[in-house]
């Protein structure tokens, strides 16, 4: 995953984060605030992805929401991704931030290990995260700590497993029964 991205960085002639210089003003501001907050910056296809440590995600989101330079007041989307059972870290959670005032976007990404797939909820920062996080919990089994109402949302409450994980078969394990 990292190989093609670093290549595309070179073809676009942009500075990679290796030297600690980030072309994205969002990443630069985060790094100024706390150097630990930015793990990696990927600039590709006109989109900025910032990989951040999971323990800081709520602080980072709260800062980006209120910082006058950015005003990411709109959480456009939150979704998970499973890299596969043999990968470690296995899960990615993507936060697509948008500003209704400045009309710019950024993607934050958190990487989670399978045996400790916990991340702080951001539903206290944007209430719209509530259902997105429930969906990610339902389909991937990622637990959002401090979420007010973390229940399954699309699948039935007694469903076994998490359907969008790569090791979950397309047609399920057995026909679902209401019994």
């Amino acid at each position: 995953m990292e190989q093609p991205n670093s290549q595309s960085n070179q073809t676009e002639g942009q500075e990679s984060n290796a030297a600690g210089i980030t072309p994205s003003p969002v990443a630069a501001a985060l790094q100024r605030e706390n150097p630990e907050w930015v793990r990696e910056v990927i600039e590709a296809l006109g989109e900025t992805t910032i990989i951040v440590p999971r323990e800081h995600i709520a602080n980072i989101c709260a800062l980006l929401k209120t910082a006058p330079d950015f005003q990411f007041n709109f959480l456009a989307d939150l979704c998970g991704f499973d890299r596969g059972p043999e990968e470690e870290p296995r899960f990615e959670v993507n936060y697509h931030l948008f500003s209704t005032l400045k009309h710019h976007r950024v993607r934050l990404k958190v990487l989670l290990n399978e045996d400790d797939a916990h991340v702080l909820s951001v539903s206290g920062i944007w209430r719209t995260a509530n259902w997105h996080e429930r969906e990610t919990f339902d389909l991937f089994g990622v637990v959002f700590d401090d979420h007010p109402d973390l229940r399954r949302i699309l699948l039935p409450d007694d469903w076994q497993g998490h359907a969008l994980r790569k090791d979950f078969p397309l047609r399920g394990y057995e026909p679902y029964s209401l019994e």
Partner: peptide
Amino acid sequence: PAGEVYMPIEASKGELGVYIKSTG
């Protein structure tokens, strides 16, 4: 090619965003 995009459009009901992750 490997990469990820988020493509938002204004659908009739609001922001319809498509996130695609490709690993090739």
